[in-house]
Design a protein around this nucleic acid. Structure first.
Length: 420
RNA sequence: GUGACCGUAGCUCAAGUGGUCAGAGCAUUGGACUGUGGCUCCAAAGGUUGGGGGUUCAAGUCCCCUCGGUCACCCCA
């Protein structure tokens, strides 16, 4: 084979696709129960959307976007995340005119040009929600609760919820100022990455994993001490909602998410089993994004979770997933001569919504039985010249080995009854 | 983008310091049971050892390049 899947991408083969289906179906059913409705936006957007929405200074925009020009020379970008596209669609279709908040969810692949690593790929899948048009702290609570509910629902047990508040446009500037006042005199003591962070976005020094840097930060001003009255109250109420629902969480003042649009509540759910890329999902409030995209001031909140990471965590925790829906019936023919009649019978069975299949590999009868066994069907049908001559079909119960004869035209009905 | 390790049949892996070292298990197909599954046994098929170049009498085994993977950093899902 010459051509392989591009770096950082992978084929999701049937076995794994089964997990995908499971995760997506659970999300759909749960999110809809919380009142969210699906939105499907394009895989690519005008590059400008992400530059404006996510922020020029972010790593995503700086170095991770799959950007290309179309035949008319327009700059397009494969979406690196879905929040900006959802907000764009929200504005483009005047969903502002609907009752607020508008609660949406999405499922699909995202693209970021990064060096692949465990839990990080160039094409990866996200499941996420966005609730646009409300400042209510209860909505923050709902979104976080939904995220946790979902992860528990699919079978995960070991989860850590981290929570922080990033303040708003009123209180963050003064905090950033005092943080810079603290950092500048010590800038020489920080690692080279932090030096860069201090210049670009001082808040991010909190993200550094190096102990030396963290020690230097032990007396640094904390955003939580600098929240304005409104943000303080909001954050307090969000926590009250979480406590009310017995959601354990830790306040993590260094939870500074890398996208510029976050305000106030930010959160992340971490799995202890995952290695360096251990965030299963995360999100927060983004009260400035809608306005930043050209709309009126509109508060919003949401989260995204990584399908691959959730799947990895499920595997690590040894969660057994419901078996892929398999076939119920396998039709075996004794000789080639019965193929047309077998084909017709199979089709009639399928028309009754019964999952059934037959052999197309020219297998011997025994080979067909082995296949039937491997497929885990409940019943095997035998069609040979003897049966056909009498207008019947032999049905074998694969568990007990018992066999009965059923008239051909009654086979679908018989199966329907016995498969119940 | 930086660093470390790695790349042998579909899958998981074996092949002392370069010389019958290209193998096993699982999976696949067939057979033992010529109209019937799950166990067992037998057999077959399957690899230009990621690709390219080099050193050598001789390379899966050494060197270089390239493509990919893994893990970490940066950062994020």
């Amino acid at each position: 084979m010459e051509i392989k899947a591009p770096r950082g991408t992978s084929d999701i083969l049937p076995e794994k696709a089964g997990i995908w289906q499971f995760l997506e179906r659970r999300a759909i059913s749960l999110f809809e129960r919380y009142g969210y409705r699906r939105i499907i936006t394009p895989i690519f957007e005008y590059t400008e959307l992400f530059r404006q929405g996510i922020g020029e200074s972010t790593d995503i925009v700086q170095k991770e976007m799959y950007t290309f020009r179309d035949r008319r020379g327009r700059s397009l970008t494969l979406r690196p995340e879905a929040t900006a596209p959802v907000v764009r669609a929200f504005l483009e279709h005047d969903l502002l005119k609907h009752s607020q908040p508008v609660k949406l969810y999405y499922i699909g692949p995202m693209f970021r040009y990064e060096r692949p690593q465990a839990g990080r790929y160039r094409e990866f899948w996200q499941i996420g929600v966005e609730a646009i048009g409300s400042l209510d702290p209860a909505l923050d609570g709902e979104v976080i609760l939904l995220l946790m509910h979902y992860l528990k629902d699919v079978g995960l047990k070991h989860l850590q919820l981290h929570l922080n508040s990033m303040g708003c446009f009123k209180c963050r500037p003064s905090f950033t100022e005092s943080l810079e006042g603290y950092l500048q005199p010590r800038i020489g003591e920080f690692c080279s990455d932090c030096k860069r962070r201090i210049k670009l976005n001082p808040l991010r020094v909190f993200d550094c994993k190096k102990e030396a840097c963290q020690n230097l930060l032990s007396n640094a001003p904390r955003i939580l001490d600098h929240l304005c009255e409104d943000c303080k109250v909001h954050f307090h109420e969000v926590q009250e909602y979480l406590k009310m629902m017995d959601l354990n969480h830790v306040i993590n003042p260094s939870l500074v998410r890398g996208l510029d649009y976050y305000t106030r509540t930010t959160f992340e759910v971490i799995s202890p089993h995952l290695g360096a890329q251990n965030a299963l999902g995360g999100g927060g409030r983004y009260d400035n994004l809608v306005e930043g995209c050209g709309g009126p001031p509109t508060p919003a909140t949401g989260f995204a979770l990584g399908t691959e990471r959730v799947a990895m965590a499920l595997e690590k925790e040894g969660v057994s997933l419901p078996k892929d829906s398999t076939l119920d019936v396998f039709l075996a023919i004794v000789g080639r001569d019965q193929k047309p009649d077998g084909f017709a019978l199979l089709s009639r069975i399928r028309e009754e919504d019964i999952a059934a299949d037959m052999d197309y590999g020219g297998r011997s009868l025994k080979g067909q039985m082995k296949l039937a066994d491997k497929l885990g069907v409940s019943y095997a049908l035998f069609l040979g010249s003897k049966e056909l001559g009498r207008g019947v079909c032999r049905i074998r119960d694969m568990k007990t080995g018992e066999q009965v004869e059923v008239k051909l035209e009654e086979v679908p009905k018989w199966l329907k009854i016995h498969l119940k």
